[in-house]
Design a binder for these strands. Structure first.
Lengths: 209, 209
DNA sequence: CGGCTAATGGAACAAGAGTTTCGATAATAT
DNA sequence: ATATTATCGAAACTCTTGTTCCATTAGCCG
């Protein structure tokens, strides 16, 4: 092999190279939507994108490499946290945003593909972790603001609360594979918030006097 | 194709057929542990199990079929719910059981493989859903008993509470891919319980007078 | 603009996955 | 025991996937 090279496409990234990447990522997403991750072959992507398959192998190396790049692309489109004035409103905004992402035909399928790829590909796993930790960090701000406003107990673990809001949605998506509805999203917010108000997100020995 | 036949192996399931199945499932699990789901090929499984590859194709059809059968095998080893005398003890037992399953080298890897397969294979998805809905149903009993004992509010949604205990563990396993530690399991129980005690698992308009 | 060379892509090749055929073997019924 | 036939498995086959080679194209820098 040419070493699934991280070097190709870095010296002259403009013009053609950029167009090739765009075409390949577009083709990858279409293929994912139509046939799912298991049917993602480098051959078909090359044909579909109208580029040489040599190029696809050289730059992405494997189907996992393709979905990883796709995820990194999403990671750049950051979505800033809400600011509705109350934790409840902010967390609901977060839950609904996640719900919509999971239900979006293209985005939802892509996320599932990356999750699948990450179970046996280290690069995909890293991209996934990085993406979500960044998101969690971004939204943790709404919890910190709520604590400052006195809406939640001092010492509430912000990141953990954000995780708790999303977790039931992802659980349904990938584990029980049940629909992720608005009711599910809102119930998740209500429960996470109830626990937070009861101080269950305050680390033991971390509560202010 | 021979139609990934559900019929082969059902008329004379004794003796050889059973031995072949055992050898193939064993080989599948070993291969999963060593190389992950993406490297699971029918060819290699056949060689490893010492059976003809024709047989593997005929009876399982695809890698997804293999992991699905593996999951169905686990489904038969039911694990009855705990009965420690308190909801807290029972839910903790559940969370620790899940944690251990996810961290078990063979079981954890297998679960992840099925989750990956389920993202693009309908049979795997069905097996996964069936397995977990049955588990949730089994453990929901501990919540119902707790309500009967007066430990939790009347009308607490038992299945939802069980889901809430597991969700953060699976979220870490497949989404953020962070370690699933004992602390994570115990924190999850504490939070779900706090929400339950606050009545957040009582469906609106379903609370007793 | 013109040279340098990164990057692409067609073609030929190699490797491996998936399929079909058919004779051998062994589970079950009587 | 013996007949019946479900199930298995070796081999030959086809098709797809993955790799290598090298000529062509087009970014980028002076």
């Amino acid at each position: 092999m040419d070493q699934p090279s991280r070097s190709a496409g870095t010296v002259r990234p403009g013009g053609r190279t950029a167009r090739v990447r765009a075409a390949v990522l577009e083709a990858t997403q279409d293929a994912l939507v139509e046939h799912g991750f298991h049917a993602l072959t480098m051959d078909q992507i090359a044909a579909r994108a109208g580029v040489g398959k040599t190029t696809v192998y050289r730059r992405w190396g494997s189907p996992a490499g393709l979905v990883t790049d796709l995820m990194n692309e999403f990671a750049n489109q950051s979505s800033p946290h809400a600011d509705t004035g109350s934790v409840e409103g902010d967390l609901r905004a977060n839950a609904l945003m996640v719900m919509e992402a999971l239900n979006d035909p293209r985005l939802g399928v892509t996320l599932q593909a990356v999750i699948a790829a990450a179970t046996s590909d280290e690069q995909a796993a890293l991209a996934l972790r990085t993406f979500y930790l960044r998101r969690i960090d971004e939204w943790a701000t709404v919890v910190e603001l709520a604590v400052a406003r006195g809406e939640l107990p001092q010492g509430t673990h912000a990141e953990e609360l954000i995780r708790a809001v999303s977790a039931p949605l992802y659980y349904r998506l990938v584990v029980t594979r049940e629909p992720v509805t608005r009711e599910v999203a809102e119930a998740s917010v209500a429960r996470a918030l109830a626990a937070a108000r009861a101080g269950a997100f305050v680390t033991a020995g971390d509560r202010s006097p």
